[in-house]
């Protein structure tokens, strides 16, 4: 019995600790575990969650994508501006195509040319921020007919009582989880991340696999931009700043390894949701919003350390 408990703690210590946290907050506040509040939290994390779904593909191959924050800004500006110019449907098509194209540039540089992913996507972060200012001319853009566009659906409406962005996020997560678990492409990604050399020896085109993970990351960022544009009905030039780090924090917290090959969409959803509930719980307990950052720090370190220690069989390196 004691051994079983120990094993549970070691394997799912994170979830157990999270449950304890949830229970603790729930006992001290009334609203925390109400359906309304839970949906609220999910709605808040739907943008980072959507992006994290795509970035998880990249991280699973052992690479990074730091460009998604700037990309979110740019794509939000594009969707809002194109909405005014070409109508909502065209705007969405253009946004998603642009997301894929930007991802493809990352993909060529990292996958095919073999440059270091951290630096490439860091350069892209800077480049895209410039592109935002170039595109918007430095001013904020707003949707002109905010009152009567069906575009508002993505950020503001609900489907059977569930906010549409939450539906989109969970649907994207479900599709991504299916791709990773049940398709040959998913298997290739785990192969490349787990052991790139062995995958090449098994006839897998690792460069192509890496390329497509960046395209997927661009696509989900496009979807996130649609939610963002619809929610805000406008876009500032810094709207996505820092999102790349939150997204990575969620992925890492879920337990997906930065070295690649181990992790899943489920873990990412869990990690992102935990970040959301920590934020929400601390706010409900009356702490100022920035206290969540301190807690996030501690949680990331403890969670990853425990995870690593369990794999290694001892705590210290």
């Amino acid at each position: 019995m004691q051994d079983a408990l120990k094993g549970l703690l070691r394997r799912h210590g994170l979830i157990v600790a999270f449950m304890v946290f949830l229970a603790g907050v729930a006992l001290n506040t009334d609203a925390f575990l109400s359906a309304g509040n839970i949906l609220d939290v999910l709605r808040q994390v739907s943008i980072t969650g959507m992006m994290a779904v795509g970035v998880t593909f990249v991280v699973l191959t052992g690479r990074l994508d730091l460009s998604v924050g700037s990309m979110l800004t740019l794509l939000t500006v594009i969707v809002v501006d194109q909405h005014n110019q070409s109508g909502p449907l065209m705007a969405m098509i253009i946004t998603l195509a642009a997301g894929c194209a930007l991802g493809a540039i990352n993909g060529v540089l990292v996958g095919y040319i073999g440059l270091n992913s951290l630096i490439v996507t860091l350069a892209m972060l800077s480049f895209l921020q410039g592109l935002v200012l170039f595109y918007s001319g430095g001013s904020n853009v707003n949707i002109t007919n905010a009152q009567d566009t069906w575009f508002a659906v993505f950020g503001r409406a609900s489907l059977f009582g569930i906010p549409v962005p939450v539906v989109m996020f969970l649907a994207a997560a479900a599709v991504a989880a299916f791709v990773l678990k049940f398709t040959t492409f998913g298997r290739q990604i785990y192969g490349v991340g787990g052991n790139e050399t062995a995958s090449v020896f098994s006839g897998i085109d690792s460069r192509r696999a890496v390329f497509w993970t960046y395209v997927i990351s661009g696509l989900t960022t496009g979807l996130a931009a649609i939610i963002m544009g619809s929610r805000v009905m406008g876009a500032q030039n810094t709207i996505g700043q820092g999102y790349e780090l939150t997204v990575l924090a969620g992925i890492i917290l879920g337990g997906t390894s930065l070295l690649g090959g181990s992790g899943s969409i489920g873990r990412t959803v869990l990690g992102i949701a935990m970040l959301g509930f920590i934020q929400n719980g601390l706010l409900l307990l009356g702490f100022p919003y920035y206290v969540q950052w301190l807690v996030t720090w501690a949680v990331i370190i403890i969670a990853v350390w425990i995870d690593l220690g369990a794999k290694r069989g001892r705590i210290f390196a």
Partner: peptide
């Protein structure tokens, strides 16, 4: 050094947390 975690993860956590410390101290 002690955990064997990648410094990217350790300092990413610190980036978020230390900013929190700044806000706690300055109160926004």
């Amino acid at each position: 050094a002690l955990s064997g975690m990648h410094s990217f993860i350790v300092t990413l956590g610190a980036l978020i947390g230390i900013r929190g410390l700044v806000f706690v101290y300055t109160g926004e």
